[in-house]
Design a protein around this nucleic acid. Structure first.
Length: 446
RNA sequence: GGAGAGAUGGCCGAGUGGUCGAAGGCGCUCCCCUGCUAAGGGAGUAUAGGCGCAAAACGCUUAUCGAGGGUUCGAAUCCCUCUCUCUCCGCCA
């Protein structure tokens, strides 16, 4: 959510910033805000009158007056009609505030000034040397051919179990997948100072609202209805409306929401959290896209990095966070590049995003394995995540998140980059301790 | 799933219709006193909005006692619904 003060004082700047990422507000924000202002003043005036009279009645009562004394009766005469007026005013105010909030809820964050606006992502740096088909002494295979060839990857069975966009890994490949995740977690906790966390995979709507997935992107999520009451008839009240759980699309949601409605101490900053979780995405609207292999799945594992930091430190923290994610690829000796996303490619909540893309020789291209964003106070404002600043006053935190990394896609990169002529796959040095010392994936003996 | 108890400020805890944004204590901040320390005395100590002021300080004002609704001139207090926590029983990885 954007700062409403900024909207009021510098609407032009906000609209310019938003248009660079292709967002046009559908309603006249300014008019709505003004309307709200005048209705609110009216409402508060009524409340003030009500409070004053009630106060005076109370004073007379404790001074010994009776409810039937004419002093009290005259006060009551003045004020009898206020509750009705107030009720109407509050209803009106509620309506307009809902409308305004609905509007504010779907406005994306403003890009940082340095983010490219030309519609092109900018390569910031790259690491390692790409192995093209020419670098191999044999025809390069893609990860599906490799995995299935070794008898370690089984999409047919996965489809039987669940349908399209699910996968089944068997034997040493499943183990390598687990090893990879463990390795990532160990690196971030032992070398980068993150606190390991175990989080819920089902979260409520409020959490998803906090990080920005709701209300705008509900169709991307898997929703789990929660039974709230037995009888249909008693569902009339607002409080009884259905409440859902959602499968997390990323552990950014539970990790960042840890700070929701909290005021943390200055000394506790920066808060650095990491966790390994499955992520669930409906992939609505991506029909026909990446249908082959492990690239785009309804369920995948990801190690997430989240930082909650002092507002003055958030860009510094973003650079560090990207570095933490890069370190994993370096240790795995996988070539990659870091891209600074342009305004149109950034996620809803971000002011600046770096994607890390790993080299996939079979596709002869780079593929995203991490997306690292600074959200500044955008999420913090939605979720009231604050810290007590140097003056002892509560102030919004800045939140950052990034994958460190997407496990499945990383596994693809290992399979393709480490493939051998005989169809086996070498295991990266750093993962061997996690693999009981074996150095390659071989064909599975039944 | 059944039965019961509860949710108040940073924390503990009082408050069952009226000068209650909320006693008291602890903690914290500032000041005073004591040549150090201990003890003591005084003042202050929520958050988010709106209005005023060029602005800060400040002043006025509104909301907030788990959440939402209701009753009332007036609700922390009464009524309804929900959420969460705790205890006991049952079931269970």
């Amino acid at each position: 959510m954007l700062d409403i003060h900024l909207l009021r004082t510098d609407l032009i700047k906000v609209l310019n910033g938003l248009s660079s990422r292709g967002f046009q507000p559908t309603e006249d924000l300014k008019k709505l805000m003004e309307e709200r202002g005048s209705i609110r003043i009216n409402t508060q005036k009524l409340e003030e009158t009500r409070n004053k009279t009630a106060h005076n009645v109370g004073r007379l009562r404790s001074a010994g007056y009776d409810m039937s004394d004419k002093e009290i009766i005259s006060l009551l005469d003045q004020t009898k009609k206020i509750p009705k007026q107030l009720k109407d005013a509050k209803k009106k105010l509620g309506n307009i505030e809902n409308k305004l909030n609905q509007l504010l809820d779907v406005i994306p964050n403003l890009p940082h000034d340095t983010v490219p606006k030309d519609g092109k992502n900018k390569e910031v740096r790259h690491w390692g040397t790409e192995k093209t088909s020419g670098s191999f002494s044999f025809p390069v295979k893609d990860h599906v051919t490799i995995g299935e060839g070794l008898g370690l990857l089984d999409f047919r069975t996965a489809t039987k179990l669940s349908g399209a966009r699910f996968s089944l890994m068997v034997g040493e490949l499943a183990r390598l997948h687990r090893a990879l995740a463990q390795f990532m977690l160990d690196t971030h906790t032992q070398e980068h100072g993150y606190t390991e966390t175990y989080v819920p995979y089902l979260v409520n709507a409020e959490s998803l609202h906090g990080t920005g997935q709701l209300p705008k992107f509900e169709e991307d999520l898997f929703k789990i209805p929660r039974k709230k009451c037995e009888s249909e008839e008693s569902k009339t009240d607002k409080g009884l409306q259905e409440e859902n759980w959602y499968l997390i699309p990323t552990s950014e949601v539970p990790l960042t929401n840890c700070a929701r409605n909290e005021i943390v101490s200055l000394e506790s900053l920066p808060i650095k959290l990491t966790t390994l979780t499955p992520c669930f995405r409906s992939e609505a609207g991506s029909y026909g896209k990446d249908t082959r292999g492990l690239v785009r799945q309804h369920q995948f594992e990801k190690v997430e990095l989240v930082q909650l930091v002092h507002p003055l430190k958030s860009y510094e923290a973003l650079e560090q966070l990207v570095g933490h994610a890069e370190k994993i690829l370096q240790k795995l000796e996988l070539p990659y590049r870091v891209m600074l996303l342009h305004t149109g490619d950034m996620g809803f909540s971000a002011t600046m995003t770096y994607d890390i893309e790993v080299w996939l020789p079979a596709q002869n291209t780079y593929r995203e394995v991490s997306s690292c964003s600074n959200c500044e106070a955008f999420q913090a404002r939605r979720m009231k995540a604050r810290f007590r600043n140097e003056k002892g006053k509560p102030e919004l935190l800045h939140t950052l998140n990034g994958s460190g990394l997407a496990v499945g896609r990383c596994l693809i990169a290992i399979l393709e980059n480490y493939q051998n002529a005989d169809g086996s796959v070498s295991i990266p040095e750093v993962l061997r301790p996690y693999m009981g010392g074996i150095d390659r994936l071989k064909h599975r003996e039944k």
